[in-house]
Amino acid sequence: MKLLSFLMQETILLNISFLLFFPINDYAQEPSQSITEQTIKKNPINLILYESRTKKSYAYVTYMPYYPAYGMIHYNTAHCKIEMTGFIDPFELKKNKLIISYKKCKVSFDQKGKILANPSETESCQNLHSDKCNFTAIPDLTETHLHF
């Protein structure tokens, strides 16, 4: 009987300490699946598309999360046209970061829900475009639902 009560006390103490170190809210804030995985689950097509269209510009980023893991970037205004195809980094996708790279040029975006934002590029990408414009000029893109 003593042993049983001891075990119960230990279990309660363990649970309390576990909750202190790993609060329940943290689990609610961090979904186990990445945005890409959630998108593929809803719409099982190996192609995800983000677009932005205004009077003065058109931009899109499309990528295949699975084999052959290609990605494509396009940004077009009256003064600037830049395009790139390359391979995506599947490990970074799990952290909701889309990185498309061709040789040493890497262009990265942050995935925030249905928005693709914060583009950045490495120095090597300067070979792919003029000085006037670059991939960082790409505005926020919104996910377009594809239905085949």
């Binding site: 097509i45 190996n46 192609l47 598309l49 677009e51 269209r53 205004t54 009077k55 003065k56 510009s57 058109y58 899109y60 499309t62 295949m64 699975y66 494509m72 396009h74 077009n76 205004t77 046209k81 395009e83 790139m84 195809t85 594809l146 085949f148």
Partner: peptide, 30 residues
């Protein structure tokens, strides 16, 4: 709107999946 447009051509059946071509046929490029 700006007149450029991505186009996707596709064909698939149960066995052959992910049969996709992405391109812009009227303003050609990537």
């Amino acid at each position: 709107f700006f007149p450029y447009q991505l186009e996707i051509f596709e064909n698939h059946n149960d066995l052959n999946k992910n049969y996709i071509i992405t391109m812009d046929t009227h303003h050609l490029g990537t």
